[in-house]
Design a protein around this nucleic acid. Sequence first.
DNA 1: AACGTTGAAATAGTTC
DNA 2: GAACTATTTCAACGTT
Lengths: 95, 95, 95, 95
Amino acid sequence: MAGNVGPHGARLASFVERIERLNEERKSTQGDIGEVFAEAKSAGFDVKTIREVLKLRAMDAADRQERQALLETYMHALGMLADLPLGKAALDKVA
Amino acid sequence: MAGNVGPHGARLASFVERIERLNEERKSTQGDIGEVFAEAKSAGFDVKTIREVLKLRAMDAADRQERQALLETYMHALGMLADLPLGKAALDKVA
Amino acid sequence: MAGNVGPHGARLASFVERIERLNEERKSTQGDIGEVFAEAKSAGFDVKTIREVLKLRAMDAADRQERQALLETYMHALGMLADLPLGKAALDKVA
Amino acid sequence: MAGNVGPHGARLASFVERIERLNEERKSTQGDIGEVFAEAKSAGFDVKTIREVLKLRAMDAADRQERQALLETYMHALGMLADLPLGKAALDKVA
DNA sequence: AACGTTGAAATAGTTC
DNA sequence: GAACTATTTCAACGTT
């Protein structure tokens, strides 16, 4: 049963190895995060609360992105108006 | 209202920012992994199968590590277990 | 204030009570396990080592199950992998 | 290296097997719980909320136990008073 | 014996 | 919605 997987074996092996390498990188970064949490903890901070802070900030960031996207849509729609007081006021509302 | 967070605010901010930075790094790596999968897919490979291969290889690696760790414990317990069928079978697996 | 929970209250109460009953059963069994450990300890055995033995045996059982499940996937993927060294090694492990 | 673990091997094997059997029992019960949750879910109930209910009831039960234990302490302390109005009033406060 | 630490199990959230 | 990962939780263990 010595197979013949065809000429694509090497290509497949390459994909597998690249993914494994990236996976290790990901885990390493994850480990770094754990270390920072541990450091914060031994500095007297409450890890759970820090997680809450991070979550809130991530939400804020997402909101900001949405608003930014909306803003750009408005920018295009109001392109011809932007220099006028009316257009400026509209932009102020979404910014 | 200048965001007075107490004397430890700067320290906390540092932790939060380091984690956020590492998080972005992690997501970026995750994105890279997704790209490799996409590349493999458009090269005609089956993504599900690649995942299976990765899982199997990871399992093997983890097993090897864990068995190695258990070996030390067993070394100490040898006297108690070595001539018990159960213990022998266990030892055979890690040896 | 007769605890009117709506028309589905009885159904919900039934679910809650069944789960609570099963939970007690689970805790009881857990207690039995603790007793066996205690008994083994007072018979002079090292509890930690017994835990290691249990872990190893559980691992082996899980491995066997998982490899069996993977085998089916591999059967389908044989054409793609069978003559790639990586694939061969993987197949050897499950065969 | 055919060990001689001593005369206690059979005893150890017995402990291991008893624990493994209890563990299966525990997992089986756990599976039953999962089934009840699934059933409740397909009946239209929110699983997360049911978990909250269970938690609250467990807390209440623990409280009741504590109060019961306290009550018994009082019972003993007030044993000689229990038949008198004064003692009864005291007992009413903790019940 | 209370305390935090460690390890395992379950739950929740995220990604595909 | 299925699978994987992370977070939380619970119990056991040693430590002070």
